[in-house]
Design a protein around this nucleic acid. Structure first.
Length: 943
RNA sequence: GGAUGCUUAGCUCAGCGGUAGAGCGUCGCCCUUACAAGGCGAGGGUCGUAGGUUCGAUCCCUACAGCAUCCACCA
C-alpha cells in the first residue's frame, strides 16, 4: 500500500469492475429491497442535492445488499418537458430560429438528438459517486415501455370518467405559451400600486370607486361586487354601471367574498383573468370576457385603441385615459403578490383555455361511478393516514395530508411539443376520441366520427409520467418482458412486481406534491399497492453560511469539483460562464476569489459521501462546509494508515485464527466495543440517522481502534509472549476487516481498495467485490465486560500520566520514573498486568510501588479511584504549579460532591426518584469521596 | 390567515427528564519507526426569554421574542 491515501487513483479503477461484475443487479433471492431513483432531468447535470440524496440511497442499497436482500436500485432519467424543450429552443435562438421555424417533427427530432448527446452526462456523474445502481435496467420516461404505460393510464382514467376536457381558467405562461399547474407558479412579492377608479352609474346619478392593482383588466370587467351588508352601497345593488373606456354597462352585484374593510369595499369583477373573479362570475351567471391573446396582448374584445398592446402597455394607456377623463381617483404604492411562472419567470396570466384535467375532487359522477376524490385522492390519503406509507421525519405527513385535503383538479395538458402526446383525437364536429392509437380510439368511440380525425396537439405534464415511475419501470402494463432498443430485457412485470412497494423513497420536500402524492395516487389506483413503504425526506443542501445555493450568488458547488478538486481560475471561469448580467458576474467573481483563494482541494468521492452522511440528521437543511469535508478526508487517510500498520505487522500469507479466545484484555475490549458499535449502526440504518451512524463509526475507528487498540497492540506485538502476538495479529486483522465492511456503504472505494489487501489475509478471495461480503454479524462477536473495565482503568491511568506530562511540560521523548501509592488489590493486579503497556505508552520506567508508611518523594499525581499515580517532582516539575493543579481538581470534585449531597439530602428525591437513580447517586458520591481523599492526601504530602 | 420547523461552546450541529457532547476553529508541547491529512494535552456553554408541571427541566407544557420554510391569500 502507498504511504498515503490518493482517492483519484483508487476510484478510477473500481467502478468499472463493480458495474461489469453484475453485483448491482438483483440477486433474485432474499427479501426484496428496492429503491426508486427520483429520475433526474435527462439533459441535466449532477448538483449537490442529487449527490446528497444519491449517497443516502447508495448507503441503504449497499447495506441491504450486504444483508442478503434481493436488492434493486431502479434508475433512469426524466424527459423534463418544459426544461428540456427550453434548452433546445435557446440553442435555436442562437441560430436566430424558433421552434416554429423548424416545425413540430424536426424540432422533436432535434430534442432527441440533444438527449442523445447530453443524456449520459448525469448518469456518468452518478457513477463517479459510486452508486450501486442497476444500470442494466436504466429507463427513460419517454422510452416505448414507459410511453405505453402513460397512454394506458390516460385511456383508463378517461374511460373511467376520471379525466375530462374542459374550458377552464388556468395559469397561463405567456412566454412559454402553455398552461402550467398551480404548483408551477410561485407568488412573489413585488412593489406595485393600488389604483382607485370611479365608475359612474348608467344614469349618471351616482358613482362608486373600485380599487385594483391591475387597471388594464377593467376592459374585461363584467360586474362590480360589494358586500351585501355594506350600508354604503346597499342602495346600488342591482343597478347598472357605466364601464369607463368601453361603452359597456355592467351590473352591481352583492357577494360575501367582498371584504367591506379592504380598499373601497368595491371589487371589479374580471372572470376571464382572475381566479376569485371567475368563481364570483360563476355564482352570478356572468359571462366572462377575455381580453388577452395567448401572448398577453389585448385582443379584439377590447376597444380598438387598446388592441395589440402588451398588458403592461395597455395598463399605461388605460391609466392615462382614466386620468384624462377624471376617473382616476387615487394612486398609491402597494406591495402585492405576483404569480410568476417557475420555469420562465414570466408573470402568469389566468386564461380561459381548453385543457385536460384529472378529476381529484368529485365524489360521484353523474352516471353514478365514483369520482376522482373517491377513486384517486382518498386512497392516497388513506395510505398515509393508515400508516401503510410512513414519512420520515413524520411531520411531513401533515404537509401531505393537508395538501390532498385541499387539492384541486390536476391540469395535465401542456401546450408544448416535447413530451407524451395526448392520445386523443377530434373529429370535425369536435367529438373526442381517446385510444392507444387512432384505430383504437375509433373502435372505442360510441359514435362515428364526422370527417377526418386530428390528434390533440398538446402533450402531458411531465409529472404525469413521473407519477407512474414505481410501476411503469417494473414492466407494467406489458405482459412479458420489456426490452430496450438494444433488445435487452429491462423489466418484466410478472417478476418485478415483487419490488413493489419499494422500501423507501428518498426525496426532497419540494416535490412531495409534484411527485410523491401523485405516485401514491397512480400506483394505488392501478396496482392496488403503495409505491413505497417509507418516504425519507432529505434535507436541502445549503452553503456553509446556510444560504441557498444559487448560480447568481456564486455559492453553488459542483460535487465533481469537490471530488476532483479545481484550481481557482478555472472555478471562476466555470461559475461565471452562464452569468450574463455584468454586475452579477463581477460579484460572483469576487466571492469565489475570496472564498477559494487556492481553489477547491480534491477530497475524493469517499470523503464527500462521508460528509453527506455525517450531515444527514433530521434537520431540514444541511449547511455544506468544505472544511468539514476535508476533515473526513483526513478520516479516510486515517483508515488507510491504520490498514497499512496492520498489514505491515503481519507475516506473509494467511493469518490463521488462534484456537482459543483472544489472549489480551485489549483484544477482548475492542471486540466488545466493535459489537456495540455494530448494534448501534444497524439501529441508525433503520431510523435513517446517517449522522449518528457516521459519527459512531468515525469514533470507533479513530478514537478506539486507532487511538487505543493499535497503540495497545504495539507492546503486545513487540513482546515475547508468542500466543499474545498471534492472537493480537489476528484480532487487528479481524476488527479491521469488519470495520471495512461496516464502512463500505458509506465509503465504498477506499474500503474496497483496502479490503482487497486485507481479505486474502483471512483466506477470502479477492476475486469478488466487498459488496458481496455479508454484513458483519454482531451477535457472533464475543464480549467481555471485565476486560472492558480493565481497559477503562488503563486509559485513566495513562491519560493521568499524559496530563501531568503535558501540563508540567515534560518532553514527550523523555523517559521518567513512575511511582504508585495506595490503591486496592485490584489496582495491584492491574498494574502488574499492564506494566509493559504503561511503560511503553506513557514513556515511563517500570512502575514502583510505595508501601504505606514509606517515605514519598514530592511528586505530581493522577488519581484513579484510590490509586495515586505519581511522577516524582525532582528536576522535572514546578511544585507550585502542581499544588495549583491539585487545588483546582479538589475544588472541582468538591462541587460535584455538593451537588450529589444536595440531591441525596432532599427527602423528596430519595422518596420519589427511581431506586436505581438513587443508588447511582450514592455510588457517585462514594467514588468522588475516594478520589477526593486520595487528592487530599497528595496535597498534604506536598505540604 | 393556515401549517411546519429552528434558537445549545467562536462557527456548523447532535443530545431531549437524572454527571452538558462532536466536528471545525483557538491555545500549548511534539516530525515518538501507521498516519504532521498526525500525536498528546488545554481552554471555551447560567442550553432564546418568562412562567408552569416534576423530587429533579437544555429536554415536557404554556406564553412571548427572533429566524426559516411551505400552503392559501384582499381586489
Amino acid at each position: 500500500m502507498d504511504k498515503s491515501f490518493e482517492p483519484r487513483q483508487i476510484e478510477s479503477k473500481w467502478y468499472a469492475r463493480w458495474e461489469a461484475s453484475g453485483d448491482f443487479r438483483p440477486t433474485g433471492h432474499g427479501v426484496p429491497y428496492s429503491i426508486l431513483l427520483p429520475p433526474p432531468n435527462v439533459t441535466g447535470t449532477l448538483h449537490m442535492g442529487h449527490a446528497f440524496q444519491q449517497t443516502v440511497m447508495d448507503m441503504l442499497t449497499r447495506y441491504h445488499h450486504m444483508r442478503g436482500c434481493n436488492t434493486l436500485w431502479q434508475v433512469g432519467t426524466d424527459h423534463a418537458g418544459i426544461a428540456t424543450q427550453k434548452i433546445v429552443e435557446n440553442q435555436l435562438a442562437v441560430e436566430g430560429k424558433t421552434r416554429h421555424d423548424l416545425g413540430r417533427e424536426p424540432f422533436i427530432e432535434r430534442v432527441w438528438q440533444w438527449k442523445e448527446e447530453s443524456g449520459s452526462t448525469i448518469t456518468n456523474q452518478m457513477r463517479r459517486l459510486g452508486v450501486a445502481a442497476d444500470w442494466s435496467r436504466e429507463r427513460f420516461t419517454m422510452d416505448e415501455g414507459l410511453s405505453s404505460a402513460v397512454r394506458k393510464v390516460f385511456i383508463d382514467w378517461y374511460r373511467a370518467g376520471l379525466i375530462y376536457r374542459g374550458n377552464r381558467l388556468v395559469n397561463w405562461d405567456p412566454v412559454l405559451g402553455t398552461a402550467v399547474s398551480d404548483l408551477e407558479v410561485n407568488n412573489v412579492e413585488r412593489d406595485g400600486h393600488m389604483w382607485s377608479i370611479r365608475y359612474l352609474t348608467a344614469d349618471g346619478s351616482d358613482s362608486l370607486v373600485v380599487a385594483t392593482t391591475r387597471p388594464e383588466t377593467m376592459l374585461g370587467d363584467v360586474a362590480v361586487a360589494v358586500h351585501p351588508d355594506d350600508e354604503r352601497y346597499r342602495h346600488l345593488i342591482g343597478k347598472q354601471l357605466h364601464l369607463p373606456l368601453t361603452g359597456r354597462e355592467i351590473p352591481i352585484i352583492a357577494d360575501d367574498y367582498v371584504d367591506k374593510d379592504f380598499g373601497t369595499g368595491c371589487v371589479k369583477i374580471t372572470p376571464a383573468h382572475d381566479f376569485n373573479d371567475y368563481a364570483i362570475g360563476q355564482r352570478h351567471n356572468l359571462t366572462p370576457i377575455d381580453i388577452f391573446t395567448l401572448d398577453a396582448k389585448v385582443n379584439d374584445n377590447a376597444p380598438e385603441k387598446y388592441r395589440g398592446l402588451d398588458r403592461y402597455e395597455a395598463r399605461k394607456a388605460v391609466l392615462a385615459d382614466l386620468e384624462a377623463s377624471g376617473l382616476l381617483v387615487e394612486t398609491k404604492p402597494h406591495k402585492l403578490q405576483v404569480p410568476v411562472s417557475q420555469r420562465s419567470d414570466a408573470v402568469i396570466e389566468p386564461m380561459l383555455t381548453d385543457q385536460w384535467f384529472v378529476d381529484l375532487t368529485s365524489d360521484v359522477q353523474k352516471d353514478g361511478r365514483p369520482g376522482g376524490r373517491k377513486a384517486i385522492t382518498e386512497p392516497a390519503l388513506d395510505a398515509v393516514r393508515s400508516g401503510e406509507i410512513k414519512f420520515v421525519p413524520d411531520n411531513w405527513s401533515t404537509t401531505y395530508t393537508q395538501w390532498l385535503d385541499n387539492i384541486q383538479d390536476w391540469c395535465i395538458s401542456r401546450q408544448l411539443w416535447w413530451g407524451h402526446r395526448i392520445p386523443a383525437w377530434y373529429d370535425e364536429a369536435g367529438n373526442i376520441f381517446v385510444g392507444d392509437d387512432e384505430a383504437d380510439a375509433r373502435a372505442h368511440a360510441g359514435t362515428t366520427p364526422v370527417g377526418a380525425l386530428r390528434q390533440d396537439d398538446d402533450v402531458l405534464d411531465t409529472w404525469f409520467s413521473s407519477a407512474l415511475w414505481p410501476f411503469s419501470t417494473m414492466g407494467w402494463p406489458a405482459n412479458g418482458p420489456v426490452k430496450n432498443e438494444k433488445g435487452e430485457i429491462v423489466a418484466n412485470w410478472e417478476n418485478d412486481k415483487v419490488f413493489l412497494p419499494s422500501a423507501v423513497l428518498v426525496t426532497g420536500f419540494d416535490i412531495i406534491f409534484f411527485w410523491v402524492a401523485r405516485m401514491v395516487m397512480a400506483t394505488k389506483y392501478f396496482t392496488g399497492l403503495a409505491p413505497f413503504r417509507e418516504v425519507y425526506i432529505n434535507a436541502i443542501v445549503r452553503d456553509a453560511e446556510g444560504q441557498k445555493m444559487s448560480k447568481s450568488k456564486g455559492n453553488t458547488l459542483d460535487p465533481l469539483d469537490l471530488i476532483d478538486g479545481i484550481e481557482r481560475e478555472p472555478l471562476v471561469e466555470k461559475s461565471t460562464k452562464s452569468l450574463l448580467i455584468p454586475q452579477v458576474r463581477e460579484k460572483v467573481e469576487k466571492r469565489i476569489r475570496k472564498d477559494y483563494p487556492d481553489g477547491i482541494p480534491a477530497i475524493g468521492t469517499d470523503a464527500l459521501r462521508f460528509t453527506f452522511a455525517a450531515l444527514a440528521s433530521y434537520s431540514r437543511t444541511i449547511n455544506f462546509d468544505i472544511k468539514r469535508a476535508e476533515g473526513y478526508k483526513a478520516f479516510c487517510n486515517k483508515l488507510w494508515n491504520a490498514a497499512r500498520f496492520v498489514l505491515m505487522n503481519l507475516p506473509e500469507g494467511e493469518i490463521p485464527a488462534p484456537a482459543g479466545a483472544p489472549v489480551t484484555e485489549a483484544e477482548r475490549w475492542i471486540l466488545t466495543r466493535l459489537k456495540q458499535t455494530l448494534v448501534e449502526v444497524e439501529q441508525y440504518f433503520v431510523t435513517y440517522r446517517f449522522d449518528l451512524l457516521a459519527q459512531t463509526l468515525y469514533e470507533f475507528t479513530w478514537n478506539e481502534y486507532c487511538d487505543w487498540f493499535l497503540e495497545l497492540s504495539k507492546p503486545a506485538l513487540n513482546g515475547d509472549d508468542s500466543a499474545a502476538v498471534a492472537s493480537t495479529r489476528h484480532t487487528l486483522l479481524v476488527v479491521l476487516e469488519t470495520v471495512l465492511r461496516a464502512l463500505h456503504p458509506l465509503i465504498p472505494f477506499i474500503t474496497e481498495e483496502i479490503w482487497q489487501a486485507v481479505g486474502p489475509k483471512l483466506g477470502l478471495s479477492s476475486a469478488s467485490n466487498l459488496l458481496q461480503r455479508p454484513w458483519p454479524d454482531a451477535a457472533s462477536i464475543p464480549t467481555d465486560d471485565a476486560a472492558s473495565a480493565e481497559i477503562e482503568w488503563f486509559k485513566n491511568v495513562l491519560s493521568g500520566v499524559r496530563r501531568i506530562r503535558a501540563e508540567m511540560n515534560i518532553a514527550p521523548g523523555k523517559t521518567i520514573p513512575l511511582l504508585l501509592a495506595d490503591g486496592d488489590a485490584n489496582d495491584r493486579l492491574r498494574v502488574a498486568k499492564f506494566a509493559t503497556q504503561i511503560s511503553f505508552l506513557a514513556r515511563v520506567e517500570a512502575p514502583q510501588w510505595i508501601e504505606s508508611g514509606a517515605n514519598e518523594p514530592s511528586a505530581a499525581a493522577a488519581v484513579v479511584g484510590s490509586l495515586r499515580v505519581l511522577i516524582p517532582l525532582e528536576g522535572l516539575i514546578d511544585l507550585a504549579a502542581e499544588k495549583a493543579r491539585l487545588a483546582k481538581e479538589i475544588g472541582r470534585i468538591e462541587t460535584e460532591i455538593k451537588k450529589c449531597e444536595g440531591k441525596l439530602g432532599n427527602a423528596n428525591f430519595v422518596a420519589n426518584a427511581p431506586a436505581e437513580v438513587v443508588t447511582q447517586e450514592r455510588q457517585r458520591i462514594t467514588d468522588w469521596n475516594v478520589q477526593l481523599s486520595a487528592l487530599r492526601e497528595q496535597a498534604q504530602k506536598l505540604g
